[in-house]
C-alpha cells in the first residue's frame, strides 16, 4: 500500500490470523484459507466438470479431461510406465500450485506460493519422495549416481562432493524458483499500483501520467498469468524428472 512517499511492497505477504484468537491459537492465517479455496476449486472443477460423464463431453468436461490428459502424459512421458503410480501426486502438485498462483492474482487475495516456507515444504516433499523411491527401487546403487559413469577415479574427490551438493540443492532451487517468481510478480504489481496512486495525487498532470502504470500493470497481469502456469509446470516437470531418475535402473 502506498503510504505517503513510501511504498510497502512487502506488506502484502504478511500473514494475519483469521477467526481472531482462534486463528491465532491454531496458527490459521489467510494462507491456509487460500489453500483450502484452491483445493476446493480444483476438486469442484473435476467433480462438476465430470458430472455429465458424457461420451461426447461438453466444454467444462473437455477442460477437465484435457487437464487430466496433460498431466497424465507429462508423468508417463517423463517418468515412464512407472509414472502412472505418481500421476495423482504430480496432478495434485501441479494444480495446487497453479490454483495458488492464480488465486493470488485476484484483488484482496493472497498467494500462498509466495511464501518460501510453503514452497520449501512442497520441494522437500518432492525431494524426500524421490530419495525414498530411489532407495526403494535402486537400493545401495542409488549412491553410485554421485560418481558420474566414465569419469576418472582420480577426480572422485572433486566430483562426488559436487554431485552431492548438486543433488542437495534440488529442493532449494525448486522452492526458491517458485517463491521468487511469485514474490517478484506481486511486488511489481504492488509497486506499479502504488505509482498510480502516487501520481494521481499530483493533480491533472499526474492523473494523465497515472495511466502509464495502469497499462503496465495490465501487461504485468498477463505476464503473471503466464508465470503462474509456467512455474506450476516447471515444478511439476522437475518433479517428474527427479522421479524418473529415481525409478531408472
Amino acid at each position: 500500500m502506498a503510504a505517503g512517499s513510501t511504498i510497502d511492497a512487502l506488506g502484502q505477504f504478511e500473514l494475519h490470523p483469521v477467526l481472531g484468537g482462534l486463528g491465532q491459537s491454531l496458527r490459521f492465517s489467510q494462507s491456509p484459507v487460500m489453500m483450502i479455496v484452491a483445493s476446493a476449486l480444483v476438486l469442484a472443477f473435476l467433480y462438476v466438470g465430470m458430472r455429465p460423464a458424457a461420451v461426447v463431453p461438453g466444454r467444462l468436461q473437455s477442460a477437465a479431461e484435457i487437464c487430466y490428459d496433460f498431466i497424465y502424459n507429462m508423468a508417463v512421458d517423463t517418468i515412464g510406465a512407472e509414472g502412472r503410480a505418481f500421476f495423482p501426486f504430480v496432478f495434485t502438485l501441479f494444480f495446487f500450485i497453479l490454483a495458488g498462483n492464480y488465486l493470488g492474482l485476484l484483488p484482496f487475495s493472497f498467494a500462498f506460493t509466495s511464501h518460501v516456507a510453503v514452497t520449501l515444504a512442497l520441494a522437500l516433499l518432492v525431494f524426500v519422495l524421490s530419495v525414498v523411491v530411489s532407495l526403494k527401487v535402486q537400493g545401495a546403487k542409488f549412491f553410485a549416481h554421485f560418481m558420474p559413469a566414465g569419469a576418472p577415479v582420480a577426480l572422485a574427490p572433486l566430483l562426488v562432493p559436487i554431485e552431492i551438493l548438486s543433488f542437495l540443492s534440488r529442493p532449494v532451487s525448486l522452492s526458491i524458483r517458485l517463491f521468487a517468481n511469485m514474490v517478484a510478480g506481486h511486488v511489481m504489481l504492488e509497486m506499479f499500483a502504488a505509482f498510480t496512486i502516487m501520481l494521481a495525487g499530483l493533480g491533472l498532470v499526474g492523473d494523465v501520467l497515472a495511466v502509464g502504470p495502469v497499462v503496465i500493470n495490465i501487461a504485468l497481469m498477463a505476464l503473471e498469468l503466464l508465470v503462474g502456469a509456467l512455474q506450476a509446470y516447471v515444478f511439476a516437470i522437475l518433479t517428474c524428472i527427479y522421479l524418473r531418475e529415481a525409478v531408472a535402473h
Binding site: 494475519h16 496458527r27 490459521f28 492465517s29 494462507s31 511464501h115 516456507a117 515444504a121
Partner: peptide, 11 residues
C-alpha cells in the same frame, strides 16, 4: 512468526 510455520502444517 507462528503463522509462517503454521501454514506449513496446515498446508
Amino acid at each position: 512468526n507462528p503463522l509462517v510455520t503454521g501454514q506449513v502444517i496446515w498446508g
